[in-house]
Design a protein around this nucleic acid. Structure first.
Lengths: 212, 212
DNA sequence: ACCAAAACTTGGGGTCATTGCAAATTTGGG
DNA sequence: CCCAAATTTGCAATGACCCCAAGTTTTGGT
């Protein structure tokens, strides 16, 4: 009874609505599709849509949740002797090299990105997700180095790591939106990563080195 | 005829609407005030409000425009032998010390900030303004160092300078929103500034030194 | 001062996102 | 098969925002 039919059905319904909505958005653009149309296409009522998704934006940016704590996870998972920044750089490097969807490097991401970039409401929603991730990362750093509440440094370092991620994905998004080949964009992104590492201050690069 | 009656009247009407709206928002909150109420209070029609302001958010964030190119102006106005980053740090230092409204250090900013922080639409709008400023700054840096279009560094340095400004004002906003004394918040902000300067990489600190 | 064009304002009439509410339906358990 | 809880739905509002056509006001000549 831990996983009733009810739960499964709800998850399926939610996914179905999200899929239908995403397809419509990609096909005709975010603004050109109404909630009523989505509801009809998904064969549910408008109220049911709102039952699962608080706002229209959430229908498109459904997969944004695990991006919220990605940086935190990377930092928590850093290796012994590795700082937070170096762990993030390493993970980013790997993600870019493997054309990971985590950094937006997959065929078909272009259409997705294009829709996001041209709709202010979606850009805002992405920014909100990024903000949440930043807060999360700051808490993580604070906990990892056992910093007192009034120490401003964890917030600053979090800001720098967040900037790494954001600057990289922004560039990748821009590249993909131009319709370029993922591998070419990846190569460019690797160069950007090196450049960014070179720009970072030593104190940032050496912050929160894992001792154990 | 360079400054006809029409122009003056328009400016006055616009300002009047904005003032009325801001007062209502501060008094009762952003969401609790409708455009219709603002129009009535300002003694114009709803359509006239939309004539001057593209969206409700713009009624509250009317003064955000000169913030868009503040960083650019600071960079362009840097002294001989001074880098872009040092100019920004100097200007920020001065703004914080003089309790300049440019960094949100004035009595009464607290109410303003509180409204912004609790309404997603306003946070988004502020972020948009910040994004515009970032683009502007990147263009400025690119022009100042005569960088080729495919040089990624100006964008990265712009991101770092933008981060300086944003991290500082975020902290100040948070402090002011707590109702603390501006001078106390200012003192804390100065410490934060020193910390940030210390975290910046040398390459960022020395970018775009003015030669002439 | 007088007129026609240009610029502003207004009223009225939509579209659509989002919400609240109560009735109708479905599901899990006994 | 029946009840109670969870879901879904229909209905009605609210309010942002857009479009258009009909006033009004301002401007630039005359």
């Amino acid at each position: 009874m831990a996983e009733g039919l009810r739960e499964r059905k709800k998850r399926r319904t939610r996914q179905h609505i999200s899929d239908v909505a995403t397809a419509l958005f990609l096909e005709r653009g975010f603004d050109a599709v109404t909630i009523a149309e989505i509801a009809e296409a998904a064969d549910v009522s408008v109220n049911t849509v709102y039952n699962y998704f608080p706002a229209k934006e959430d229908l498109f940016l459904d997969r944004g949740e695990d991006a919220v704590d990605r940086l935190s996870r990377w930092v928590r998972g850093r290796r012994t002797g590795e700082s937070a920044a170096r762990a993030v750089l390493r993970e980013l490097h790997e993600a870019v090299e493997t054309l990971s969807p985590a950094v937006g490097l997959f065929e078909g991401c272009a259409d997705f990105t294009r829709v996001v970039l041209e709709v202010p409401a979606l850009r805002s929603r992405l920014w909100q997700i990024r903000q949440d991730g930043l807060g999360e990362l700051e808490r993580t750093l604070r906990a990892e180095v056992a910093a007192p509440d009034d120490d401003p440094v964890p917030a600053l370092v979090a800001g720098q790591l967040d900037w790494l991620y954001a600057a990289l994905t922004d560039r990748i998004s821009a590249g993909m939106a131009e319709g370029r080949d993922p591998r070419e964009v990846s190569r460019e992104a690797l160069a950007l990563l090196d450049e960014m590492e070179d720009l970072l201050g030593e104190r940032v690069l050496d912050y929160a080195v894992r001792l154990t």
